[in-house]
Simulated assay, not measured.
Amino acid sequence: MTNLALFDLLSNTGVLAFNMQGLITAAAIVGGVGLIIGILLGLAAKVFEVEVDERELIVRDLLPGNNCGGCGYPGCDGLAKAIAAGEAPVSGCPVASAEIHAKIGEVMGTEAIESERNVAFVKCNGTCDKTNVKYHYTGTPDCKKISTVPGNGEKTCIYGCMGYGSCVRACAFDAIHVVNGIAVVDKEKCVACGKCITACPNDLIEFVPVSSTCKVQCNSKDKGKDVNAACSVGCIGCMMCVKVCESDAVTVTNNLAHIDYSKCTHCGKCAEKCPRKIITIA
């Protein structure tokens, strides 16, 4: 081997050794930095750790997970936290059954007090054969969009159900459907989440006790003459229902009858006397 070849071999060997040493050094530095960061993160997690009430986790597992917001809190996580903190009743979930409420009560060491549940009710009986129309709408079938059309939609009554199903699409429980031009609630499926109320641009959906038998199925604020021109079953504010109610449960405000369910005895006299038959008896 010539001196030049031997020199090249030694040179290449030295470069290789130098490169390996550099790689080992770099790996050691990266590993050390990673170790230090890991230790710091572990310490930070301990310092800033937020203690979670174990009962909150158990309650969350018991809740159905619909995240409908019917309880008034931002989803099931929010309700579980509120129940664990004593800020919400153990029966606060409108979707959960009485059995689930009882289990949550056991976790919290308290008794679940069941109050009468509410259901959504559509205050309109203006079906296709009872209400008049000003024109025929052919745009996007959405109540909120139609409410921006001049005249507040195609129906002559600007207070009633438009019948294009914004409430239906908002309901996650298949509890409301449009039948013959108006929305109808299935009270057996309704959990009172309130999504349909928010979706209705005419504010004609309200909560009523599930046991209520007499309900005012109208939302018009117009005077009798204008009501007659728009719908054959609208409230004309005649006060007949008020006069026959012995429990002072019926009042008329802004030409529209209202029932105070805390006073109503379900006698049905208001419905029997109503000339327009807009107070219905279940």
Rank of each mutant, 00 (worst) to 15 (best):
A5D: 05
F7Y: 01
D8G: 01
L9Y: 08
L10C: 14
L10R: 14
S11N: 11
G14T: 02
V15H: 09
A17W: 07
M20H: 11
I24A: 04
T25E: 07
T25L: 10
T25M: 07
A26V: 11
A28K: 02
A28W: 01
V30A: 15
V30R: 13
G31Q: 12
G32P: 05
G38E: 01
I39R: 13
K46E: 00
E51M: 06
R55Q: 08
L57T: 13
R60W: 03
D61Y: 12
C68M: 07
G69E: 05
G70W: 02
G72A: 11
Y73K: 14
P74M: 05
G78E: 10
L79F: 09
A80H: 06
A85K: 13
A85C: 05
G86S: 14
E87L: 13
S91A: 15
V95E: 04
A96I: 14
A98W: 00
E99F: 14
I104G: 15
G105P: 01
V107F: 06
E111H: 05
E114K: 10
E114V: 15
S115V: 13
E116C: 07
R117D: 08
R117Q: 11
R117F: 01
N118A: 13
N118K: 15
V119W: 04
A120L: 14
A120E: 12
A120H: 05
F121I: 11
K123A: 13
K123V: 03
K123L: 03
C124T: 00
C124M: 00
T127G: 03
T127E: 11
T131A: 15
N132I: 07
V133W: 09
T138L: 10
G139V: 15
V149I: 13
P150N: 09
G151W: 01
G151V: 05
K155T: 10
T156L: 09
C157V: 06
C157T: 12
Y159H: 15
Y159S: 12
C161T: 04
C161P: 03
Y164I: 05
G165R: 09
V168M: 04
A170I: 06
A172V: 06
F173W: 06
F173D: 02
D174W: 08
A175N: 08
A175E: 04
I176F: 07
I176D: 02
I176K: 09
N180Q: 02
G181L: 05
A183I: 00
A183Q: 02
V185W: 10
A192T: 01
A192L: 00
A199Y: 04
A199V: 09
C200I: 02
P201F: 09
N202Y: 04
N202L: 00
D203E: 14
I205T: 11
E206A: 07
F207A: 05
V208P: 07
S211C: 06
S212V: 08
S212D: 03
C214L: 08
K215A: 12
C218S: 02
S220K: 06
K223T: 02
K225Q: 13
D226F: 15
A230Y: 14
C231E: 06
S232I: 09
I236M: 11
G237C: 01
C241K: 04
V242Y: 00
S247W: 06
A249M: 15
V252C: 04
N254D: 12
A257F: 05
H258R: 10
S262W: 12
K263E: 15
T265V: 13
H266N: 12
H266W: 12
K269S: 03
K269I: 00
C270Y: 00
C270D: 01
E272M: 11
C274M: 07
C274V: 07
R276H: 10
A282Y: 07
